[in-house]
């Protein structure tokens, strides 16, 4: 017995295919196309196979940038997640104080990225910037344009200032979703403040914290604008992260082939890390359902 075939279903799927093709698959294929060819002129191109990939992976500049990037993202997560959770725990739960605190905490999130860079660029200068001035007065030899360590720390502090509020807001939303009865029950049991955090608040925040970790990882791994404005990747290559490296290749030197090859690698690295992080956190809280 043959099943009746309904071709109308195709009509419903085709628009979606077209959209995804134009928005994702075709641009990506262009990159794939460039990554395996040497474009000599608009009419002249040679297939080079995996040569660009081999070349880029053997580039010591890239290896340095990758290590720098990994250390940076790790620092961002290690600082921003606990700090954001601590901030959320310290924020008032209700009333006008809660609203006021929310606005103040969320403020950095409303500032455009290049403005954040500019703000910190000025803030960190020892002649006209408050931060730089104070540090210099305290006898600390601080100069983010000259010292590698200072530049690095400034970029990190800037990111913490800019994005910890996002983690705090997410954690705050998670905390507010916990019914009051949980706290009462813990009080009746005689549980300590730490036990309340460890066994009630943390498990209940698992979902939002997972989102926070993924977002902060992805964003910090792709950081570009702020260090570009603040240090331009310097001094030397001290704050050249992967995005900046890529821009130098693609726009600065116009090496489209290696740049395309690296774009694909970059994309796969992010995908891989997100996959690992997601699975790790899933396993970490297995069974923590909605109790």
């Amino acid at each position: 017995m043959s099943k009746p075939v309904n071709q109308k279903a195709l009509l419903l799927i085709v628009p979606m295919f077209v959209c995804v093709a134009f928005s994702a698959i075709m641009p990506l294929m262009t990159v794939v196309n460039y990554s395996v060819q040497d474009i000599i002129s608009p009419t002249q191109h040679v297939f080079v196979g995996t040569e660009w990939f081999r070349m880029i992976l053997n580039d010591p500049d890239l290896q340095d940038a990758l290590v720098r990037q990994l250390v940076f993202s790790l620092c961002v997560l290690l600082i921003e997640i606990p700090l954001g959770v601590a901030l959320a725990l310290a924020m008032p739960a209700a009333g006008w104080r809660a609203s006021a605190t929310l606005v103040v905490v969320a403020m950095p999130l409303l500032i455009p990225w290049n403005v954040v860079g500019t703000v910190w660029q000025i803030f960190g200068r020892s002649d006209i910037g408050l931060g730089g001035y104070v540090l210099t007065q305290l006898g600390i030899d601080y100069n983010y344009t000259a010292h590698t360590r200072d530049a690095w720390l400034t970029v990190l502090v800037m990111d913490v200032w800019h994005w910890t509020p996002l983690v705090a807001l997410l954690a705050y939303a998670g905390l507010r979703a916990i019914p009051d009865a949980f706290y009462q029950a813990a009080e009746i049991d005689g549980a300590s403040r730490f036990a309340v955090f460890r066994y009630i608040e943390l498990p209940k925040m698992r979902g939002v914290l997972m989102i926070a970790v993924l977002l902060r990882f992805m964003d910090s791994f792709m950081i570009y604008t702020e260090p570009f404005v603040l240090t331009g990747g310097g001094p030397g290559n001290a704050t050249t992260f992967l995005s900046q490296y890529l821009t130098q290749k693609a726009v600065g030197q116009f090496d489209l082939g290696p740049a395309a090859a690296f774009s694909l690698i970059y994309f796969l690295i992010i995908l891989l890390f997100c996959f690992i992080l997601y699975n790790w956190m899933q396993r970490l809280g297995q069974g923590d359902g909605h109790a």
Partner: peptide, 18 residues
């Protein structure tokens, strides 16, 4: 409440989730 010997059960199902 910590010094009293009592227990309470609520409308919501309150258990330690983890």
């Amino acid at each position: 409440v910590r010094e009293r010997n009592l227990a309470m059960v609520y409308q919501q199902f309150i258990n330690y989730p983890a």
